[in-house]
């Protein structure tokens, strides 16, 4: 009788320990949602790398020579690797290697020295970078990318999502495979590329401009330097170009199928009696910037400010 009781107690004990081990081994339990708040000293003009799979990343510049990371780590987050070495600071949200789906990632706000160069890469997470003066590279595979600030060079890209840039940088590249792209700024060389989506560019002055869409309209507004090169190539979509009335430029506009409306007066002519295409060449202000617009299927409208 005593022996049987001992066996039962041993059996129940083993069951309890097994259940405990199983419970401990479940990431959702040992890694419950928690807050994260860490600070490291950093160089005023260092480089900050950020990587996250899902959640959200917001990077802001501040006056301190420190990098401060705060936010919430979801159930599926294993840890945050936050390391500094010389001028480099690296922040990586780490997930368990064998996890099948990540439902709850990390939502982080990262404060960096204002003069930092910032590079952010995410998979399925929106990215926002603001008030940073150094070079900015922000990308996501599936998520919106927003950049405000940057005085040197800004590159913002996503595969599926919208890209929005407002920057005083002198060189700006924006790209989305599928999504809307918009950029605003002062004086910059601008590159914009979209497969499916609309492009809006609005700058005080373009020093150069390259814009391509396969499917999507383009709205371009601004002045051009006399030495600027501007190429707008659209396969399917309309172009609206709005420029100052006293612009100095040489225009070359061609559509395979689409009309051309020119506020500067000269009318387009048909390229062929069999196709609806138009072509137009003219100069304003004695010439200067080289502006070439080319569409396969889409109209072109040139407006005065």
């Amino acid at each position: 009788m005593e022996q049987n009781r001992n066996r039962i107690i041993t059996f129940v004990g083993v069951l309890a320990i097994s259940a405990s081990l199983l419970t401990i081994g479940t990431p959702a339990v040992w890694a419950a949602e928690r807050d994260y708040d860490e600070t490291r000293d950093a160089k005023a003009n260092g480089v900050v790398y950020v990587e996250n799979i899902t959640g959200s990343i917001e990077v802001q510049g501040w006056e301190k020579n420190q990098v401060h990371v705060s936010g919430t780590l979801g159930n599926d987050v294993k840890e945050v690797e936050f390391k500094t070495s010389g001028k480099k600071t690296r922040i990586e949200v780490v997930y368990p290697r064998k996890i099948r789906n990540i439902d709850e990632g990390a939502d982080l706000v990262i404060m960096v020295p204002r003069g930092s160069r910032v590079e952010v890469e995410c998979v399925s997470a929106p990215v926002t970078v603001s008030a940073v003066e150094g070079r900015i590279y922000a990308s996501s595979i599936s998520g919106d990318v927003t950049v405000e600030g940057g005085e040197d060079e800004v590159q913002a890209e996503t595969i599926s999502g919208n890209v929005e840039v407002r920057s005083e940088a002198t060189k700006i590249a924006v790209e989305s495979i599928s999504g809307r792209v918009s950029a605003k700024g002062d004086r910059a060389a601008v590159e914009a590329s979209v497969v499916n989506g609309r492009v809006d560019l609005e700058f005080d002055v373009f020093t150069d401009c390259s814009l391509e869409t396969v499917n999507g309209s383009a709205h371009v507004t601004g002045d051009f330097t006399e030495s600027a090169d501007c190429d707008i190539d659209i396969h399917s979509g309309n172009v609206i170009l709005t420029v100052p009335a006293d612009l100095k430029a040489d225009f070359e506009v061609n559509t395979f199928s689409g009309g051309i409306d020119n506020a500067f007066g000269k009318r387009a002519r048909k390229t062929s009696k069999y196709t609806p295409g138009r072509e137009l060449e003219f100069s304003t202000g004695g010439g200067g910037a080289q502006i070439r617009i080319n569409t396969f299927s889409g109209s072109v409208e040139i407006r005065k400010m």
């Binding site: 789906n101 599936s142 499916n196 396969v214």
Partner: peptide, 27 residues
Amino acid sequence: TPGGTPSPVVAEAAATWALDGLDEEAA
């Protein structure tokens, strides 16, 4: 490039994108 630790979740995201990307490829 920060060059992070490869994760199977990234592969899943890539596969998802590959499916989504069909529209763009078709375009």
